[in-house]
Design a protein around this nucleic acid. Structure first.
Lengths: 199, 199
DNA sequence: ATCATCGTACCGACTGGTCGGTCCCATTGG
DNA sequence: CCAATGGGACCGACCAGTCGGTACGATGAT
């Protein structure tokens, strides 16, 4: 007995409260004390599960990166046409970014607060994800399905810029669902890659 | 005689050193002491010219916002076709964002660190800029030059997401100039707005 | 020409407070 | 008995902003 106010394990509560607070006020403006208070524990508990405040942020990044990488791989490896695969992958990354809007907000705002080494690891993981997506674009270009006049790398940066920016303007209580926004974004992407005729 | 180490006025030096440091380490991780040391003055000087650290950031925002608004207005009000005006405006905003990459980095990373009131003012200025661009898209849709199946507002958010993301990946010593990237970005935008046939 | 007056620009020590992280201890389940 | 789990007081570093003071050029009266 004597369970805490919520029976969700302490480690999970720390992660989700930290995510919420980091998204709301930023990494540097959120004190460790605020995080542990929100989770209903004390600093002793936090430093038992995490090495540092930095490590806590690193774990938040890790969770969302692993999930998105898994989903991207799933869509990229299906046996549909390259257009369909790219469209599905693009729609999905928008939908999951919107479903985890706090993580999306944190990502590009707090990256540079991480210690250089941690930052390097996160960047490397991010790059692999990025490359997976880029390869999909490059495949379509090689097959002549997409126009090849703009580097696949830049198209990818162009698209992910829009995705990362979602945290700035998307409101969950707005008229559009994440999947709908994803559909629009994917349409814009595919259309910008289309040559003279449809695929 | 007896001029300081640089003859650039102190206020300007404070602004440019602060811009550089904020872009490099973030707003919260940069102390006022570091800024004034970099500018070769002391805290007294800084608090003579600015009300607070917050006010310093506000001024940085103000400068770049005024410049970009002025340029956008210039391109949007020319008498070329709507496609040409949008293409030129899109190319230019990318070029100036790249030319002031530090400001681009700061903008979306540090916005939320501002005091609520200051934040509201900056957001309002940003929104007017945004709307000016959106109106250009909407005009093209109304005239049937662009497809109207995706809200102009979302197209604008989509595009500016990419622009704001430039600070994350663009390197000035890379193979592409800001104008070249701008051209590509504008092509992607215009193409995604194109209907079945070219304009 | 000289001196008193004054405003702007700037200095740098200091203050009140915050923060990340540590350390030692209590409790509990196996 | 012991390892896992967590409490909470505490430390040293740091930080934004303050404040009394100085340096100096401009002005103007004599």
């Amino acid at each position: 007995m004597m369970t805490m106010t919520r029976d969700e394990p302490v480690r999970q509560r720390l992660l989700s409260e930290a995510t919420r607070l980091f998204a709301e006020r930023g990494f540097e403006s959120t004190s460790v004390q605020e995080i542990v208070s929100a989770a209903g524990v004390t600093k002793g508990a936090m430093y038992h599960y995490f090495d540092s405040k930095d490590d806590l942020l690193h774990e938040i990044y890790g969770r969302v990166l692993r999930m998105q990488m898994e989903r991207l791989t799933h869509f990229a490896d299906s046996d549909a046409s390259v257009s369909e695969r790219l469209h599905a992958a693009a729609t999905d990354v928008v939908a999951t970014s919107v479903a985890n809007l706090d993580d999306t907000k944190i990502f590009f705002r707090s990256m540079h607060q991480l210690a250089p080494d941690t930052q390097k690891i996160v960047r490397a993981e991010r790059r692999r994800y990025h490359e997976r997506f880029r390869d999909l674009v490059a495949e379509g270009q090689r097959d002549g399905v997409f126009t090849a006049d703009i580097p696949a790398e830049m198209v990818t940066d162009f698209f992910f810029g829009s995705v990362h920016h979602l945290g700035t303007w998307y409101h969950p209580d707005g008229p559009l669902s994440g999947k709908e926004v994803g559909g629009h974004f994917a349409d814009l992407l595919l259309r910008s890659l289309r040559g003279k005729v449809g695929d």
